[in-house]
Amino acid sequence: MRRSPDFVVRTVGGQDLLVPIGAMVGKTNSIVVLNPTGRYIWDLLAEDRSPGELAAMLAARFGIDRERADADVRPFLDDLGRMGLLEP
């Protein structure tokens, strides 16, 4: 999976915001706020990644165990997908 090209991340007031661009502007009436860990994963999703790959990178980056990383990454990816932030 990979992030949608219809959104860009911008840091405003210390918050990482996903802002719609292009044609998506007219279809969206919201923006999305990412916490720092969410931003880290969003950046990784610039390339095609599997959930397992993302979990492994998250575990290595933050020094958490792989099981916890798996448990945290999957619902986050579900959220991104539900909000239309991933490529179909």
Binding site: N29, V32, V33, P36, F76
Partner: peptide, 14 residues
């Protein structure tokens, strides 16, 4: 390392 917190995405409606 940066303190860990689970990844979150929160929608802000306009």
């Amino acid at each position: 390392r940066q303190p860990y917190e689970p990844p979150r995405a929160c929608r802000v409606e306009v």
